[in-house]
Design a protein around this nucleic acid. Sequence first.
DNA 1: TAGTTCTATTGATTTGGATCAAGAAAATTT
DNA 2: AAATTTTCTTGATCCAAATCAATAGAACTA
Lengths: 189, 189
Amino acid sequence: MNQVLFNIQRAFGASSQELDALDKVMEKTTLEKNDFFLTEGEVCKSIAFIESGSMRLYYDYQAKENSNDFFFENSVVLSFASFLSQQPSKVNITAIEPCKLLVIQYTDVFSLFYQYPSLKRFAEVLLQEHLIKSEARAASLLNDTPLVRFTKLLEEHPRIFKRIPLHYVASYLSISPETLSRYRTKFLI
Amino acid sequence: MNQVLFNIQRAFGASSQELDALDKVMEKTTLEKNDFFLTEGEVCKSIAFIESGSMRLYYDYQAKENSNDFFFENSVVLSFASFLSQQPSKVNITAIEPCKLLVIQYTDVFSLFYQYPSLKRFAEVLLQEHLIKSEARAASLLNDTPLVRFTKLLEEHPRIFKRIPLHYVASYLSISPETLSRYRTKFLI
DNA sequence: TAGTTCTATTGATTTGGATCAAGAAAATTT
DNA sequence: AAATTTTCTTGATCCAAATCAATAGAACTA
């Protein structure tokens, strides 16, 4: 059994029947560094589980790439807004490191929900978690100064600084790469 | 039939039976200016529909009140994060103008969903709309300069400038009241 | 209606972070 | 492993918005 299925089983008590059904519709794929999982304007028609590697979700806005999220192993990756509404995505999602992914298609997702209630419950929890995360992201950008965002990120997600190129991290914090570099020397990183 | 029920019927084709059930659990209440609908730390146990008036959702953060949303007639008001997780709210919600509200309790919401699928569908649409709005809010704070946020708000929601005290609007835009005042003279408002 | 508090404007000054510029270090490619 | 590209750092300058300060105007309230 792959790690993704194992996690779902452990967290939601999915039956082996449900896990089998899920396994059947999961396609293994890989992405090279800088390959796109989703591009702006395209409708998000699949969900990815990351087996290994890291990814970045960003807005391409006025010649700037503003990163809004990073993903690592055992994460679920998609544009919720585009996937749910089946409207063109406003974001891009690309591989930072080479990635091994398990991918499920939109149509399969809903036919699975129809058949297996505990998978529907899994999706509802994912959706709720994402909503809370999205509100927290907006709150952080509203309430915190750039320096506070930096120190919080450093404390809460130190691995981001180890595995993500710093100019991407700078754009996530909504500061220039130069300013991030200065924060880092100031905090002896 | 009140305006709220009328809207639900029109948008979701709810049956008269469903609307009756909804009507039964809706309690009319009023709020005076500055009264709280929800305070930080409290669990959000109800949903309000605004019949008349306006409300404000804000973070109370380091001696500053940072407004994150404004609501007018025919809006649905709650802290989604707190309501869904039944965890203490991180936000406050208060009346700006005196409000007439229709309020539904948490427990009634879920018993209604259980009985009436089209109301569940109504809730799912609300949730999806909120998620997209929350992502858009974060995107705006990440991508746009203060001045661009101001011009977009002016264009997309001009009534906010007519009915909401400007220092609240300033905090929503994440700028000082002085800067908002200067933007306004610059744009001849 | 006079007094008080709240809200908004305008001016002077300060400041945190952006931008510009150059070079160093690291990673990738050939 | 040499060449090229990408990433990161450091310094100098600039600028948009914050802060500080004073006043005016509106809206409560006693």
